[in-house]
């Protein structure tokens, strides 16, 4: 499975980067989500894969051995939530930029103060 996850992470990053470079706000957000997912996948796989053994200590026991690596899981859990926060904020920005600037093309959003655009 390792090789599959490596391939998937590569696909996700490539597709995400490609969408982000498209210059449209909605595909950009799609790309951002994909790259977030790829990052989580990479962290998860870096902790090594263990099939079907969640890091849960049985009732009465003091510790376990041979379970999935708990550390990357804890990291990803927060990463997913933070990624979601970022996405929500980016969505709000995308909506607002369309509302104010009247465009979803990012290459047209090149003036720091709208109304004084410098063409390039």
């Amino acid at each position: 499975m390792e090789i599959m996850i490596a391939l998937l992470a590569g696909f996700l990053v490539a597709a995400g980067a490609y969408l982000m470079m498209s210059g449209k706000t909605l595909p950009y957000l799609f790309g951002l989500t994909m790259i977030s997912n790829a990052a989580n996948l990479i962290i998860f796989a870096s902790g090594r894969l263990t099939f079907g053994k969640p890091p849960l200590i049985p009732e009465g026991a003091h510790s376990i051995e041979g379970a999935s690596n708990a550390l990357p899981q804890a990291l990803i859990l927060t990463a997913i939530v933070i990624g979601f926060g970022l996405l929500v904020f980016a969505l709000a920005l995308a909506y607002r930029s369309y509302y104010v600037l009247g465009t979803t093309k990012m290459d047209h959003m090149n003036a720091s103060e709208p109304g004084t655009e410098v063409g390039s």
């Binding site: 390792e2 990053v13 490539a14 870096s46």
Partner: peptide
């Protein structure tokens, strides 16, 4: 550009593993 980056990520992850 996306392809070069994607392949880099896959190869890196394989090597890390």
């Amino acid at each position: 550009v996306a392809g070069i980056l994607g392949v880099a990520v896959s190869v890196t992850l394989l090597m890390v593993l």
